[in-house]
Simulated assay, not measured.
Amino acid sequence: VDLRECGITAPGIRAIFPALAAFITAAKLEPYRVAERRGELKHVLVTEAADGQLMLRFVVRSEHLIGQIRKRLPELRAAIPRLRVVSVNLLPEHKAVLEGEREEVLTESDALPMTVNGIDLLLGARSFFQTNTAVAAALYRQGRDWVNEAAPASAWDLFCGVGGFALHSQAPDRSVTGIEFSAEAIASAEQTRDALHAAHPGAGYDRVRFASGDATAFALGEGNDPELVIVNPPRRGIGPELAARLEASAVSRVVYSSCNPDSLAADLAAMPSLRPARGRLFDMFPHTTHAEVMVLLERG
Rank of each mutant, 00 (worst) to 15 (best):
A26K: 14
K28L: 10
K28H: 15
V34P: 00
V34M: 11
A35S: 11
R37A: 13
H43I: 06
L45F: 08
L45T: 06
E48S: 13
L54Q: 08
V60Y: 06
H64F: 12
L76Q: 02
I80V: 15
L83H: 11
V85R: 15
V86C: 14
N89M: 03
N89I: 04
L90K: 03
L90P: 02
E103N: 12
E104C: 10
N117F: 08
G118K: 07
G118R: 07
I119K: 05
I119N: 00
D120C: 06
Q130I: 06
N132H: 09
T133K: 12
A134S: 14
Q142K: 14
R144E: 12
W146G: 04
L167Q: 10
P172K: 13
A185Q: 03
I186F: 08
D194A: 15
A199G: 02
A211G: 10
T216M: 03
T216W: 03
T216F: 11
G223T: 05
G237K: 11
P240G: 11
E241A: 15
E241W: 02
E241R: 13
E241L: 08
V251P: 02
R253M: 04
V255A: 08
N260Q: 04
D262Q: 14
A266G: 01
A269K: 15
A270F: 15
M271P: 05
R275A: 06
G279K: 01
F285N: 04
V293C: 12
V295Q: 10
